[in-house]
Design a protein around this nucleic acid. Structure first.
Lengths: 290, 290
DNA sequence: AGTCCTTACGTAACTCGTAACCATC
DNA sequence: GATGGTTACGAGTTACGTAAGGACT
């Protein structure tokens, strides 16, 4: 189970093709074929079906492990090598809804402290922020989600369960101002199973809400919060959002959620290496969790 | 970062010697030396000091990652290969204090259901049970610890944070019957910082209590609960224990703990592969968490 | 016929063991 | 001088690329 083999296995699983994998990883088809054969021989069980290329049961199992292993391997390398290199940069990753005024203020504070800090901010979906901080590509990650009050977020796998709480704010259902629901003081989410919902996997993913049965009428694949709120305002469907986000809106109205008790929570993830007290990442995380 | 290299690195770190590592892993000294050199070249930084052999800063970092990576690699292999093999065996690991009458009853129930089930029960410290279930060497693991009411246990690294709650019972300070404290209705742990404590890392490790400042007067390195209670009864020191354990004792008295609020909690860990509904491990875990 | 994976085979790279070397106690 | 890690070198193994082969569309 050489990491090399795992990497090509994962790539084959993703591309569904030996030749595409060969091209992407700068091998020949033949090499890919041999690597997969070696892996299957090592584990004593077929991992892929050929023609068409697909995962066997064992392959699906391995895929889950392999993805995580490769991330952690990279994380280990980053942790060890970065311990040697001096700081002086700050790479911050955020999920779209993790951005808020307090975060902006903290970031401004850090940049005022160390004027010439090379700062990079990336907005992406939950998975990319989680793996980014795990591998050390990011120094800090801010992720958000909806959960019961003061419950930690359930993060996808390489995510560190020791994430730090940054902000909790009420979660509401966003509706257009004219919408019948806007007159209700509060709703139960389960009662809205028949409503149209907007699923925006990168912003407010329906499937991560601790509620079943909400079906999406419209999918939005971007990461722009304004597009999502615009879609809601235009009546394409409802979305669960943090209350502060729509507090000043003239086109959206918040409806409190009676059941389940739900808050929007932002948590901070740290790259394993950042520990030095003078590290900008350390100081920023102190500001954010204060 | 070949797993092979990581394994010898970990072994060198553990043994503190290249030659001992070579012997244990069936290599020559020379091979070990070359492997370490290859790893250091790959990561671009020295990992070990020689003469005497010890870890550098980077080495300590790598060691933490390497241990986990190796466990997860083994876990991946076990998960994939075991999916192929039929069940019919049940390997259960327990920390000493995780054993209790309900556990015994559930185990008896399973063995009554499937009479010819090859069953193996292992009692060991927390780390071994956690890594055992992670690697798939164990099908189920029962681990225990002291925590705030209804808070999950904080398990060491390869441990799955989704462990299931099995039993919670009050935590008490165990004292000999004649002891002055035995007359007190309750105590605050912090007030007992000057008392003698028994540290039994495999049974009731002081350092895992969510309280600082308790110093050990005596260390017990075994895993026998009866030895630990015997030591307490003989006046060698105090220990935090689950109340049911000393409920019927004539030589030990329980003293309730006022602050911090503390319970003894048993959680269930499952090997990644066990999912089939007819699997004995699945049925036992259903019994335990019912 | 074309696409795509597999197999055969030769070469290049790697890894390990032997043995000589060097540093420390 | 004994112990223990390093370096040099050769042999066995592994892993890749080229090229031919075979299966499915």
């Amino acid at each position: 189970m050489d990491p090399h083999l795992l990497r090509t296995f994962v790539t084959v699983a993703e591309t569904g093709s030996f030749s595409a994998t060969a091209e992407r990883l700068r091998y020949t088809q033949s090499a890919v074929s041999q690597q997969i054969a070696a892996l299957e021989a090592d584990l004593g069980t077929p991992l892929l079906t050929r023609r068409p290329v697909g995962l066997t049961g064992a392959g699906e199992r391995l895929l889950r492990h392999a993805r995580i292993l490769l991330v952690r391997l990279e994380a280990a390398r980053a942790d060890v090598t970065r311990a040697t290199a001096p700081p002086g940069r700050l790479a911050l990753g955020l999920t779209p809804l993790a951005w808020s005024a307090p975060v902006a203020a903290a970031l401004a504070g850090i940049r005022a402290e160390s004027v010439r800090l090379r700062t990079r901010v990336m907005v992406a979906g939950l998975d990319r922020v989680v793996t980014g901080t795990a591998t050390g590509a990011l120094d800090l990650g801010l992720v958000d989600g909806f959960t019961a009050p003061s419950d930690p977020l359930r993060l996808p796998e390489p995510g560190d369960p020791r994430a730090l709480r940054v902000i909790e704010s009420p979660a509401v259902v966003a509706v257009p101002v004219g919408h019948p629901l806007a007159r209700r003081a509060s709703v139960e989410l389960a009662d809205l199973a028949d409503a149209y919902w907007i699923d925006a996997p990168l912003v407010s993913p329906l499937h991560r809400l601790p509620v079943d049965g909400l079906r999406a009428g419209l999918h939005y694949d971007g990461a722009e919060v304004t597009v999502l709120t615009g879609l809601v305002a235009a009546g394409h469907g409802l979305a669960v959002l943090p209350a502060p986000l729509i507090a000043g809106s003239t086109v959206l109205a918040p409806v409190a959620i009676a059941v389940p008790r739900l808050v929007h929570r932002v948590e901070l993830l740290r790259a394993p290496a950042t520990a030095a007290p003078d590290d900008p990442a350390t100081r920023l995380s102190a500001l954010l969790t204060a």
